[in-house]
């Protein structure tokens, strides 16, 4: 199961310890508001893939707007893998 805490940790790693100012990271946080570059979001998505041994649907992951969207795509893929 991918959690908000886990993704928050990855976001902080990408930001090199500099927390995004004035934004509390939660499920409804928009990825665009975090000030992450496309490369940093890529790093987060594919690190999650590697840690959980799962493949995100790239087209859907690219369209994800909030943190929650992204986590849902990952967890759906995990669930599909478990039931298979």
């Amino acid at each position: 199961m991918i959690t908000v805490e886990e993704v928050t940790k990855l976001i902080h790693r990408e930001m090199r310890g500099k927390a995004p100012t004035g934004i509390e990271i939660a499920e409804d946080t928009k990825l665009g508001d975090l000030g992450l570059s496309s490369l940093q979001v890529t790093e987060i998505v594919f690190t999650l893939e590697e840690t959980h041994g799962v493949e995100f649907d790239p087209a859907r992951a690219a369209d994800a707007r909030t943190l929650g969207d992204l986590i849902a795509i990952g967890n759906e893929a995990l669930a599909a893998q478990d039931s298979a």
Binding site: S38, L39, V41, T42, E43, V45, F46, P58, A59, A62
Partner: peptide
């Protein structure tokens, strides 16, 4: 200007070596 690597090169982004070099 932005071309999302998740959309255009997921095959390469799955390669950790290329992510490290990018970083």
């Amino acid at each position: 200007l932005t071309s999302d690597p998740i959309r255009y090169c997921p095959d390469l982004a799955r390669d950790r070596d290329l992510r490290v070099i990018s970083r």
